[in-house]
């Protein structure tokens, strides 16, 4: 299908528009998924930290660290939670899930802080760490680290799905655009051929182009106009008005 130069710009415009739509929706998708997932993870982690903190009070007061460890071992099985540690009111580590040991950054950090922090632990990955006080902090605190790598993985998966969908829409859209532009270009091709024919024939009468001349769109009107001009020119030629040096 030959596409007229006139329509190539339109086609490029369609390409460009699709590109803008694809990129902008992907960026929006990344932002939305990342923000929502991060907020959800942080919120869930805080809820879990609070649940453990509430459940830990009796256990801590009874000094039953075995039961405390058993409790956090159950929570660390939840997807996304990478580590949990419980500190006493003095900052001593009472139970944790680290292997092969408590990371230096955490061991030497401020374990009494309740502020959400982002940590990058060597050999472990990147985490968002939330904390919840036990008995308003007088019995210690529960700290939970969520793997941000998992959030990134989910964002990547969401973007992948988005790009897959946009790619399909893009390909289908482009094929449709080419077909439509081709459809639109066909009458113009006809008018062009008709105009060339009119220029070449001595007495144009439109025979053989009835279909084109019968169209009620711009192509039909243009064809009829060309025919009219041609007939006028033929008539003028016959009247000698269009002779070289002749006057109108």
């Amino acid at each position: 299908m030959k596409i007229q130069k006139l329509f190539r710009k339109t086609l490029f415009g369609v390409f460009f528009l699709f590109g803008v739509i694809g990129v902008s929706t992907s960026v929006l998708c990344i932002y939305t998924v990342d923000t929502h997932l991060s907020e959800e993870y942080e919120s869930n982690s805080k809820d879990i930290a609070k649940t453990i903190a509430d459940a830990s009070v009796d256990i801590l007061l009874n000094r039953n660290l075995t039961a405390l460890q058993s409790l956090i071992d159950q929570f660390v099985e939840i997807q996304g939670i990478s580590y949990i540690y419980i500190t006493s009111e003095t900052g001593e580590f009472l139970a944790h899930t680290f292997v092969p040991g408590i990371p230096e950054e955490i061991r030497t950090g401020d374990t009494t802080s309740m502020v959400t922090v982002e940590r990058s632990l060597p050999g472990m990955g990147d985490f968002v760490e939330v904390a919840s006080p036990i008995l308003a902090g007088v019995a210690g605190a529960v700290h939970i680290g969520s793997d941000t790598g998992l959030i990134a993985l989910k964002v990547q998966r969401a973007i992948g799905q988005q790009i897959y969908l946009i790619s399909i829409i893009f390909v289908v859209g482009i094929l449709a655009a080419i077909w439509l532009v081709g459809q639109a270009a066909r009458p113009v091709d006809g008018v062009l051929a008709f105009a060339v024919k009119l220029a070449q024939e001595r007495e144009a009468d439109g025979r053989g182009n009835e279909k084109l001349l019968a169209r009620n769109d711009e192509a039909g009107e243009l064809a009829r106009l060309f025919l009219h001009f041609s007939q006028v020119m033929d008539r003028d030629k016959a009247d000698g008005l269009s002779q070289p040096g002749g006057k109108e």
């Binding site: 075995t66 460890q69 071992d73 139970a95 944790h96």
Partner: peptide
């Protein structure tokens, strides 16, 4: 051992 058993002995 990083579980209740290990913690019991650690304690």
């Amino acid at each position: 051992q990083a579980d209740a058993y290990g913690r019991s002995g650690w304690a």
